[in-house]
Design a binder for these strands. Structure first.
Length: 113
DNA sequence: CTTATGACTTTCA
DNA sequence: CTGAAAGCCATAA
């Protein structure tokens, strides 16, 4: 009985894909969205991580996901920019701070699947 | 069905 | 690259 009721696993797919990001590398929301089949659903990727349950926080390297400008866009108080920057630095990713925002050299640390 | 929102991206200057 | 404005996709109500 082929229940083709393809559930909206968009969020789950995001988590699965983010988990595959190698340590020391980062990916952009658009890149994740493109791999999911929707290059324009970058916002959904960000939202997926926004609603990411605490139980998945330590399973999904959400810190390795940044915007196209190589900047941390987190507006979340829980997942603060400072925290994300710290985690990335511990993974070997160079994070530059500028005007309260963190910048990452995508040319060096962008994930190439 | 429409409306509103959001951890984005692209285009223009 | 940075900043401002418009666009696009998925979810919730």
């Amino acid at each position: 009985m082929p229940s083709l009721k393809n559930k909206t696993n968009f969020f789950a797919d995001v988590y699965t894909l983010v988990k595959q990001i190698p340590r020391g590398k980062v990916a952009t929301y658009g890149q994740i969205a493109a791999l999911l089949g929707s290059p324009r659903a970058a916002r959904m990727v960000g939202w997926a991580l926004h609603v990411l349950p605490d139980s998945q926080l330590h399973l999904v390297p959400w810190q390795r996901v940044i915007n196209r400008a190589g900047r941390i866009s987190t507006t979340c108080q829980i997942h603060s920019k400072n925290l994300q920057a710290e985690l990335l630095r511990k993974e070997g990713v160079s994070v530059s701070k500028r005007q309260g925002n963190f910048y990452i050299d995508l040319a060096e640390f962008l994930w190439h699947p």
